[in-house]
Amino acid sequence: MTTIAERPAPTPVDVAAPAAAGPLRPLRHALALAGRSLVKTARTPEALIDVTIQPVIFLVLFTYIFGGALGGGDRTSYLQYLVPGLLGQSIALAGVSLGVNLNTDISKGVFDRFRSLPISRSAPLVGAVLADVVRYLILFCFLMGFAFLIGFRVQTGPVELLAALGVSMAFALSFCWLSVLVGMLVRTPGAVQGFMFLLVLPLSFGSSVFVDSSTMPGWLQHFVEVNPITHLVGVVRGLLLGGPVASDLAWTGGWIAVFLAVFVPLALRAYNRRA
């Protein structure tokens, strides 16, 4: 009936002599786990919708439906204003799936295996975050490429474009720990998504993503002024369209530090507590 019984146990590979336990060991584990996430992404290309088609739909909607009205009849100049803003919004939205995926992994028991292995407890989370670098790269290239096709032009140069990419990445990789934290705290993947949208939508609309805050009520202006997405978008606008970036860059750096200092330890704690 079965062939298992007839086979002798396999000859051992010497697993008792693992590679030297250097300082790179946790990084190696995180990269192996990031590789796992990437394989999963490659197998389910539809999981990339939020970094490809979705931002493009927003771009098209806002440019062609609202662009004329918002830009005072000048769609092209609104497009210039909109693209850095949409980059900020898309980065915030793209983080949602990270928490959803981690929550799914936990509910499926995959993480039980990881937690029973002699690896750093944070390795699965760090690995998942590292794999998201690829998603943010795709987002940046896709959005910029499509924006170029419909008339967006970088007013500065390639160095500023790369700098914008760098700042966006740094922001994305710190902000996404909020999603990790929610993914650890909330019970089901669906609830993670709902909860994250609840947090991300006010952040992305209550900002300078789509319009200048000067026509908003005072209390909302205060919110917009401290909103991390406003400052990320400010840096990207300054870099791509030309203009001062120092103040927004300082704000963004501050927010990145806050995200890392607050969300990372909280997420790790929640992960360790989650049975």
Binding site: V15, R25, R28, H29, L117, P118
Partner: peptide
């Protein structure tokens, strides 16, 4: 292979 890598096998 993933488990092997996490167990520090080459």
């Amino acid at each position: 292979v993933l488990i092997g890598r996490l167990l520090d096998l080459s």
